[in-house]
Design a protein around this nucleic acid. Sequence first.
DNA 1: CATCTGACACTAT
DNA 2: TATAGTGCCAGAT
Length: 117
Amino acid sequence: MFKAIQAAVRRIPRGRVATYGQIARVAGYAGAARQVVWALHAASGLPWHRVVGAGGRILLTGEHSLEQRIRLEAEGVTFAGARVRMDIHQWEKGASPQRIRNKKKSNRGGRRGTPRK
DNA sequence: CATCTGACACTAT
DNA sequence: TATAGTGCCAGAT
């Protein structure tokens, strides 16, 4: 669990970033983006700064967000305002962000992948 | 075993 | 673009 997540985080090359959802997926826990958070909290010595929210948004709170940004910039990651330029630094996943899902008004709340069997 | 929490993701408004 | 509401998972209490 955490181990897998931690491993996934370590797989992020320097100068790139990944979203919590991506990591969860790579770790084998698609849809468990929150567990990534947990793992990052519990683990130490991980490149946590390479982990950002969807769209490259820094979700950290307080000064941590600032530190993350600084660390990323130090690795060569560029920012577009308050967000990371995922178009350039997105870890894997190709350059096709946003996936238009069916516009059903009945379906609110995006349930991440996790096929609920 | 039940409940709460967490640095989330997604869609609709 | 920003905000609000909902769904999901695993660990801690």
